[in-house]
Design a protein around this nucleic acid. Structure first.
Lengths: 333, 333
DNA sequence: TTGAAAGCGCTAACAA
DNA sequence: TTGTTAGCGCTTTCAA
C-alpha cells in the first residue's frame, strides 16, 4: 500500500480510503490511486486490516461439521457458503468425526484466525468451553443438534415429529411389528427420532418390542448385522424404520441379502442419492438441508452484525417422500 | 499478550517465546507464563503473527473446488483436510460451479487472506492470472484438470487409459455398438475420456459411429434424453459408456424407463454411492480420490516448504470395478 | 478534501 | 536466559 501511495503521489490514508471506497475523495485521486494499484498488482491484506480495524472483523467464518465428505455435511456446507459468498465472507471448515477433542481443536484453530462467527454441528457432551469465544465476541449458531452447557441460536430439523410421521406411515400400511434402528444414542437427534418412533407406536396403541429396537449402531455394517439378526427372530419385523442415512442403507443391504426387500417395508430418516432408483425405491423422511444451512448462516450474520435479541431455536419441517419401500403392506395375519 | 506479560511479570518477548515453544526459556518462566495465559484465557492471534513473521505464513490454504456439495469435490476436500490437519493448517474452500469468474473471485478472496497455498480444480480456459499469485509467493497445485497458461504441479487421474479400459471391457463382452456420453467438451478430463473411448474402439478395429457419441451433456436430464434418443435409433447401442457420474446415472434412468437395464450394458466413469445396490449393480471406472487429494496436499506443502524442483504431473491410476451392468453380453447377431 | 502520527498483536534483530 | 526496540500493512484519530 505504501508503494501504491508513492506511485500515486498521495498519502497512505488516501490509498486506504480509495481501496475501501470511502466517500470524500476527489475523482481525480481515486483514478490515480486505482491506476497505481493496478500497475503494482496491489493485493490488500485482510489480516492487517482486521488487526487494525476497530471491529476486528476478518470477513471469515468457521464451520465445524461432522465429515466434509458425507453428503449431509457437504450439503449444509454448500448452503452456508452461498449465503457467506453473497456477503464477501470466506469459509473455513473442518471435520469432527464425532470426536469431542477434534471439535475443540477446530474451534481453537478457527478462533486463532479470529473468525467472525462459527457454525457448529456439536459432538461433545459439553459446549460450555465456547462461552470463552462468545466473550471474545465470536458469534455462533448450532445446527443439527442443540449444544449443551451454553445458550445459543440453534437450527434443527423436526426430528421427533418427522420420525413419528414416518413410523405412522408404516402403521397406516398395516404394520405392527416395526423395528427401530438408531445411531449412537449420545447424539441428540437420534434420541429425538427414537422418541418420535415411540410416540407413533403409543398413538396407535402398539407395544414397543425391545427386541425390535437396536441403538448405538455406528456403522452401516452394524445396521446390517442388527437387521439380519432381527429378520431371524421368531417374530421378525414386517417393517423397519432407519434412524439415519447409513443405517437405512445397512438395513437395505440386509433385506437384499435375505431377499426380503419386496416383503419388509422400509422407511429411512434422511434422503440420499439414488434412493429413487432402488428397487423398490426407498421411502424417506427428508430434511431440507438447504433451508437449514441458509437459516443458520443468516442467523449467524445477524449476530455478527450485532443483533442481541434473545436466542432462538428454529425447527425446520421434514418431508415424508413415499417412493415404494414404505408402502409395502404388512402381510395378513 | 501484553496482559499475559504483565501478569507473569515478564517481557512481551518472553511470552512470545513461551507461546511458540522456542527453546531457551527457563522452566520457571515457562510455567509462570503458561499459568498467566490460562488465567487470562489468552488466545493467540495468528493474523498478527503472520503479519510480523518473516515468512508471512498464515497456516491456511485455499481450496477452489467445483461444488462442495458434490461427492467428487467433497471427497477431495476431505482428503486434503486430513493432510492439512496433520500440519496444523486450516482450510478455506469455495465452489466454482464451472464459472470462470467465480474461480477468480475465490482466488482473490483467498489471496487477500494470504493463504500459503492453493489447490485448484480449474474451470476457466486461462489460469495465467495466477502468475501474479505465484510471484507473491503463493504455492499452488491443480487437481483433476490441468491449468492453461501457467506451468505448475498437477495431479490427475488417468482419464484416457481409464476410459479405454472401460470401453475395452465392453468390447470384450461382445459389444460393437458402444455409445459415448460426455460432459462439456471444454473440460479437459472429458476430452481425455473421449479419446480413451476412441482408442479402445480403434484398437479393436471398430468404427466410431457419430450417432452414438453425445457430448456437451451438462445435466443428468441431458444425458437421459440423449440416451433415450439413441435407444430409439434403428441400430441402437448395445452398450453405453458414461463419461461421468451424473451422466451415467442419467443413462441409467433412460435404460430403466425403457426397461432395458438388463439388456444394454453400462459402464460409467467415476464411482458413486449405492452403485453396488442397483439392479444390475453398476460397473464403473473409479478414481482414487483419497490418493489424489493426499498427493495434491502433499505436493502443495512441499512447495510451501520451499521446494523449487521442476513441476510435476502426477497421474493416478483408475480401477475398473465390475459389478454386473458392464458384463451384460452383446446379443448375438 | 487530504495527510501525519499512532498503534492493532505479534515477532525479528539485536542488546544486555 | 531475558529484555528492548522497531515495524509487518493497515486503519484510527486528529489536525490541516
Amino acid at each position: 500500500m505504501r508503494d501504491v501511495a508513492a506511485r500515486a503521489g498521495v498519502s497512505l490514508k488516501t490509498v486506504s480510503r480509495v481501496i475501501n471506497r470511502e466517500p470524500g475523495v476527489s475523482t481525480a485521486l481515486i483514478q490515480r490511486v486505482d491506476a497505481a494499484a493496478a500497475e503494482l498488482d496491489f493485493r490488500p491484506n485482510l489480516g492487517a486490516r482486521s488487526l487494525r480495524r476497530s471491529d476486528g472483523r476478518t470477513a471469515t467464518i468457521g464451520l465445524v461439521l461432522q465429515d466434509l465428505a458425507n453428503p449431509y455435511s457437504a450439503s449444509l456446507h454448500r448452503a452456508i457458503e452461498d449465503i457467506a459468498r453473497a456477503r464477501g465472507v470466506a469459509v473455513l471448515s473442518g471435520s469432527v468425526d464425532e470426536t469431542a477433542a477434534r471439535e475443540r481443536e477446530l474451534v481453537t484453530a478457527f478462533s486463532a484466525r479470529r473468525v467472525d462467527g462459527l457454525v457448529i454441528m456439536p459432538t461433545g457432551t459439553d459446549q460450555s468451553y465456547l462461552l470463552l469465544e462468545r466473550r471474545a465476541g465470536v458469534a455462533m449458531v448450532f445446527v443439527d443438534r442443540p449444544p449443551v452447557g451454553i445458550e445459543a441460536d440453534v437450527v434443527l430439523a423436526d426430528n421427533r415429529s418427522g420420525a413419528r410421521g414416518g413410523v405412522a406411515h408404516l402403521i397406516a400400511h398395516g404394520h405392527r411389528d416395526i423395528a427401530f434402528l438408531g445411531d449412537l444414542s449420545s447424539i441428540a437427534t437420534e434420541e429425538e427420532r427414537h422418541r418420535g418412533y415411540c410416540d407413533a407406536m403409543a398413538e396407535a396403541g402398539l407395544p414397543v418390542r425391545a427386541d425390535l429396537v437396536a441403538k448405538d449402531l455406528d456403522t452401516m455394517d452394524g445396521a446390517q448385522t442388527a437387521t439380519h439378526r432381527m429378520l431371524e427372530l421368531d417374530h421378525p419385523p414386517t417393517a423397519i424404520f432407519g434412524g439415519q442415512n447409513l443405517i437405512t442403507i445397512g438395513a437395505l443391504r440386509a433385506l437384499r441379502a435375505a431377499r426380503l426387500q419386496q416383503q419388509v417395508a422400509l422407511v429411512g430418516f434422511d434422503d440420499f442419492q439414488l434412493a429413487d432408483l432402488m428397487q423398490p425405491a426407498i421411502t424417506v423422511v427428508a430434511q431440507d438441508l438447504q433451508q437449514i444451512g441458509h437459516l443458520a448462516a443468516e442467523t449467524l450474520f445477524t449476530r455478527v452484525d450485532g443483533d442481541e435479541s434473545p436466542y432462538t431455536t428454529a425447527v425446520t419441517p421434514t418431508r415424508l417422500t413415499p417412493r415404494g419401500s414404505g408402502e409395502i403392506r404388512a402381510p395378513d395375519r
